[in-house]
Write a protein that binds this DNA or RNA. Structure first.
Lengths: 350, 350
DNA sequence: GCTGGCCTCGACAACGATGTCATAACCGAG
DNA sequence: CTCGGTTATGACATCGTTGTCGAGGCCAGC
């Protein structure tokens, strides 16, 4: 009687089996193995089975990287994703959405954090290109991306997220920053505020500038002079924002409503408000949603971005470019959404 | 006068330059180009310069994947990282720490999310192996990892994080779950509680079981019978936890202190406490720290894990294995830390 | 029985790099 | 001036795969 253990058992070798081994075991040529693996036509069912058996027996696995060397189009089935930081919740959501969309196509994602460092941006892009990624999705930091022109002209698929590219033309997927900030302003105005203040991030970040512009334009459009409106920029961490808010709120003529242009700035402002016991008296709208915002006291009203949608859209555009779409680059806008939770609906003192 | 524009400008071709192109332009053999790029000895300074010039002129970049085909050891300078989800803050912190540690060695990271799906675990591992990663760091989901034995016996460097492997022997880096949960219990006991409750995650997750064990052992060790202590398991999302907590707190003899074994469970419990107006009367200690925990009312006392340290340690172990360390596998423990913020220091009613 | 066409299948080159090894050039010693 | 040894360099095979192309087998049609 023939048992499993009678069958040829390959020695557990420290080297991975290759197509040659499979071919030898199945008694066919390596090209036939390749055909079976890639589901190409022109292999008889009997041969196919023999090959599949050999593959199973040897635990063979295709070497994608070796294949990409020869394959038409040189696809490596991997892409690079450059984010401010993989540990930033907003970025992480985008990452997740992209991973899902690309994973469905068998594409693996290299992820990396930029930390607002233009040198890192270039180094990481170089590292990814050296691994022959099929495309790049990135949040640019550097003042411009002209250094990518060689790749760009080689038609490397690229999608910029959150910020638009400078110096090269490529697809971009962004939040309607100015519109969203405008909505925040309108919301506060509608609740009767006239003494507003703006607390913002570094002005070398495009989105920060957009948010400021949108906010101020909306306020100005409502007939409120913006020249006297406190605008504090370049708050890049929680502590800086807290200090700025403390100072602002302790000033002679403090605002009755604050718009903070980014998560960490919102957190710092919340702390300052609480320290001064003003958290239920001064209105606050923050740009960007965050976990437990509804559990704060009061709940924090925000302009929520939709990172998953940004991720999905970016993946979609990247895949389209990889598949050869050569329409002129476009910027896709993902609308933001105002979520009322209490802090933004506080009215000014009578 | 010779200007830059007099220099030979390569036509912007749609194909990437290779070593052959560089060699041709520099008037040397491709092996010499390889030597220059890899900083091998035996190239005269004059030749080196010629090659470097040609590289700069053509904007040449080494193809790491092609090189790895032939290179000794076949290093691809990439590793795979499998996490519950790249968008989970705890995972994202680990990811970030690993990226930094590995990036310093020129190693790129493929990241993927498992979503507690054993099938996904296997599929992603296969995808990464097909890309010939130099190593794997993973949070296992599947009941056991015996399916990785072929890779394991080929000495593929592997490090398990957060949970220990079953079915294969490999390094692991974990939090002292039982000890941490014990600390939570001791803390609550010390504050005078005798009516405790445990709200936990799915029991098929090793860490959840460890935390439960640690908690109950500490309570039992203090002479309090654990048989009557409410233990509610398998709470895997915020809403389930909220419901469970509501029910528990509305029962005839409600606990005066609750230990929640995971972030989402903590959030659900917080909601329930707030809804019932008990947030300042019932003590709460949660396992795992979270953003703004100190901004809650009251601040939430937690057993904080140290994801950055876990990430750093995992990277260190992975690199050691890649570099040939063949000591017997070990489990490394990263201690947790109790952070007092108010909710855990609430005393039971007199 | 021969021809032509289809279907299977494998030999071989090539992808871009690196390891091996041979060779040319050069040097100082005898 | 020759010889042995060192240094610089390139030809070539090779890594694991896929594209090209030709060979052989089989069958229908004449």
């Amino acid at each position: 009687m023939t048992t499993m253990s009678d069958r040829y058992q390959p020695p557990l070798s420290p080297t991975r089996p290759t197509m040659r081994h499979v071919a030898a075991l199945a008694g066919v040529g390596i090209k036939t193995v390749s055909r079976v693996i890639n589901d190409e036509a022109g292999v008889s069912e009997a041969t196919r089975q023999k090959v599949l058996d050999a593959i199973a027996q040897l635990n063979y696995q295709l070497d994608v990287t070796a294949g990409s060397l020869r394959r038409a189009g040189r696809r490596t089935l991997s892409v690079g994703l450059l984010l401010p930081s993989v540990s930033n919740p907003f970025s992480a959501e985008i990452h997740r959405a992209m991973e899902d969309a690309l994973g469905a196509r068998g594409i693996a994602v290299f992820a990396a954090s930029l930390d607002d460092d233009p040198k890192r941006e270039q180094a990481i892009i170089a590292a990814f290109l050296g691994r022959r990624v099929d495309g790049l999705v990135l949040t640019p930091i550097a003042k411009n991306q002209a250094y990518m022109i060689p790749e760009h002209s080689r038609n490397l698929p690229m999608v910029f997220i959150d910020r638009e590219p400078v110096g090269v033309e490529a697809d971009a997927v962004v939040t309607d920053n100015a519109v969203g900030a405008g909505k925040a302003a309108a919301h506060l105005l509608m609740h009767g505020h006239t003494k507003l203040a703006y607390l913002g991030d570094r002005t070398d970040i495009q989105t920060a500038r957009e948010r400021r512009r949108g906010f101020l334009e909306e306020v100005g459009g409502a007939g409120i002079p913006t020249s006297a409106l406190p605008v504090i920029d370049n708050l890049h961490d929680e502590e800086a924002a807290r200090q700025a808010a403390l100072e602002l709120l302790s000033s002679e003529d403090p605002p009755t409503a604050i718009f903070s242009s980014q998560n960490l700035v919102t957190f710092g402002t919340m702390r300052a408000l609480k320290e001064l016991g003003l958290h239920k008296r001064v209105a606050l709208v923050g740009f960007d949603d965050f976990t437990l915002a509804d559990m704060m006291d009061p709940g924090v009203t925000v302009i929520a971005q939709h990172p998953e949608r940004i991720g999905v859209k970016s993946a979609e555009r990247l895949l389209a470019r990889i598949d050869g779409d050569d329409q002129p680059p476009r910027t896709y806008i993902v609308p933001s959404e105002l979520i009322q939770r209490g802090s933004g609906e506080i009215r000014p003192p009578a």
